[in-house]
């Protein structure tokens, strides 16, 4: 048995799986959720960085 003999079988597997549809709604759902999650993280990051900055300004001025 030669590994190269399996190439047509792999093509057959690919072809079959090409007919399994990834719907437009599924794709949009995934990327839109990601965009929303990313946007939610922005204010959190700003708040955290502002808190660290205030702490450093208040307590570490003479360090």
């Amino acid at each position: 048995m030669n590994i190269e003999n399996f190439k047509p079988s792999w093509k057959q597997f690919l072809q079959h799986n090409s007919s399994v549809d990834i719907s437009q709604d599924e794709i949009l759902g995934i990327i839109d959720n990601h965009s929303k999650e990313s946007l939610q993280l922005v204010p959190e990051r700003i708040f955290r960085n502002a808190a660290i900055f205030c702490f450093l300004i208040t307590f570490c001025q003479n360090c």
Binding site: F13, L14, Q15, N17, S18, I22, Q24, I27, I31
Partner: peptide
């Protein structure tokens, strides 16, 4: 464009 690209190559991803 992304959706179009995925549809074209969904065989690779599914496999």
């Amino acid at each position: 464009l992304f959706i179009e690209m995925l549809k074209e190559h969904q065989g690779i991803i599914n496999s």
